[in-house]
Simulated scan of single mutants.
Amino acid sequence: MDKHCAEATSDWMAKKPVCVLRDHPNMTSKGVKVELRKCGVKPSKMQVFRAKNKAPAKIEGTHAESYSKIPRYAELLRNNNPNNICKIHYDRPNLLVEPKFLRIFISIRAQKLGFVEGCRPVIGFDGCFFKGPSGGVLLTAVALDANNSIFSIVFAVTKCENKETWRWFFYYFQEFFGPFDNNIPLTFMSDRQKGLNLAYEEIFPDATGRHCCRHICSNFKAQFLDILAVSIGRQLKVMM
């Protein structure tokens, strides 16, 4: 019997091994092929590859579906702990257009208490890119606890990293410090990139600024490569 079926597409095949992949998410392509053979089809290598990649979306949902659940997530955060901060911004030019997610800022009450009771008033800020299909940037603020371990304070998800988004970030970061003593001497550490230091200097003019040594070294190498090479050459001659 010929088990090659033109109507057995990768979308149809992705639905078949869902139950097995839910219990065994690390199943190999050979395992998926065996499960599909039980359905009476003989898939090609490309069909198995596509079905294996599409199956997780049937189990976990897509990124677009996850973004649609953000308002419900924010509601749960506020209901379970009224002191949590969760601010969502949407891009909606007019009422005739469906709102599009723009950015979100989140601070958990336990993070506030942990920072006040067990962390130094030295806060580092940075952003990193998401590698998923939707893109975006994760903005974070962290501190050091009594064990010199990184302690997360607040985080936000935005479309990009620039002065405007950092200014928006620090605007709500003020609300994070609202209940605290304003006399706490704050020290902010940053990489001075994409308007970060300009943004917090506007919102927190009394904070002391510090800069990441690794970024200073990297910027020095990029801008003064010839001077660095000459300096290293002289040091090698002295050593020889």
Rank of each mutant, 00 (worst) to 15 (best):
M1C: 09
D2M: 07
K3A: 11
H4P: 04
A8F: 09
W12Q: 04
M13W: 04
K16W: 12
P25N: 11
P25E: 10
P25W: 11
N26G: 12
K38E: 11
G40Q: 02
K42F: 04
S44A: 05
S44R: 10
K45M: 00
K45V: 08
Q47C: 01
V48E: 02
R50H: 13
I59Q: 02
I59W: 14
E60N: 14
H63M: 06
S68Q: 07
S68R: 15
P71F: 03
R72M: 08
R78N: 06
P82N: 11
P82F: 07
C86G: 04
H89R: 15
L96T: 06
L102S: 13
I104T: 06
I104M: 07
S107A: 15
R109D: 12
R109K: 15
G114T: 01
E117M: 10
R120T: 10
P121H: 11
F130L: 15
P133F: 09
S134N: 14
V137D: 01
L139W: 01
A141V: 08
A141S: 15
A141R: 02
D145Y: 10
A146D: 10
A146S: 13
N147F: 12
N148S: 11
F151V: 09
I153Q: 06
F155H: 07
E164Y: 08
W168H: 06
F169M: 06
F170L: 15
F170V: 03
Y171F: 01
F173D: 01
F177D: 08
G178T: 03
P179A: 07
P185W: 07
L186T: 05
F188A: 04
D191W: 04
N197M: 09
Y200S: 00
A207P: 13
H211T: 13
C212H: 09
Q223G: 06
L228G: 02
A229P: 00
